[in-house]
Design a protein around this nucleic acid. Structure first.
Lengths: 144, 144
DNA sequence: TTGTCTGCAAAACATTTGCATACTG
DNA sequence: CAGTATGCAAATGTTTTGCAGACAA
């Protein structure tokens, strides 16, 4: 157990350092939680889970850290839940997400499926498909 | 001009009635604005645009109406902008959305492209691709 | 008249900002 | 010591809720 914790913190430390982020205790704990919990947590979930272990932790630090990690490309922010941003530590692979509106969990879907609502996918009932592209539009590009 | 307004209100009225929604004046104006402006507006944009014409309009009514229209399947809520929900009156066709993070406009993309970040699409520079599926997960289904 | 729609005011909720204190190199 | 990180308190922005009056069938 102790070994596992050490390992996951070590992996988180590696990620922070190679992204050029100073691996403070709070940042280490926050990223380590996100990487190991596999629940695509919200800021509030992170805060609630770490609060018992780090009683001085504040929401501000959680938000500061999340914004920094997104900026540095360590985390992907997901707006699939309509109420809060959730965070995915898997920034490398080209995968999709499935949001269950009952339990509010987010599942990784490994292949990007050419699928249609009403279908089944890995046992989940897909009611809704939304493809979101972001970037810079034609007109804004020409103004740069 | 007058004719155009009458036509668009008439179309909005048809949509409301066939969705089983009582076509009150405020609802008619809100849906008609969304259907004709083609800008995937936010609640605030709707409010600001209609306020001069309907000085008594309140944000509450805008939110009530939007929630009702989403519930009845008349509008799609888009969470592509991280700060606010935006609304799409085109619920039928299976299209995607492009969000420009400069001008904050949302463009309809007619085909669902098998595209990758860094690519160009209809002149827009795509920096980010996110496929969001929602529905009921395997475990929640088995509990029903 | 009965129920629904509207809109004000207040609340709720996620997130950000200002600022002072505490670390860390 | 200098610069950055942390965290409290207050502010912000979006959305919801409670409730009372207005409207429509």
């Amino acid at each position: 157990m102790k070994q596992d914790i050490d390992n996951s913190r070590y992996r988180a430390q590696q990620v922070l350092v190679s992204a050029g982020i100073k691996p403070s205790f709070q940042r280490l704990m926050i990223l380590s939680f996100i990487m190991n919990a596999h629940i695509h947590p919200s800021a509030e979930e992170i805060f609630q889970n770490l609060k018992p272990e780090i009683p001085t932790l504040s929401r501000t630090t959680v938000y500061n850290t999340l914004n920094l990690l997104v900026e540095k490309g360590v985390l992907l922010p997901l707006t699939i839940s309509e109420h809060e941003t959730r965070y995915d530590p898997n920034t490398g692979s080209n995968h999709s997400h499935f949001f269950c509106h009952h339990c509010e969990r987010i599942f990784d879907i490994q292949e990007v499926p050419a699928c249609v609502a009403g279908q089944e996918l890995e046992g989940h009932l897909v009611e809704n498909v939304r493809l979101y592209l972001t970037g810079v539009c034609r007109e804004c590009r020409s103004k740069e």
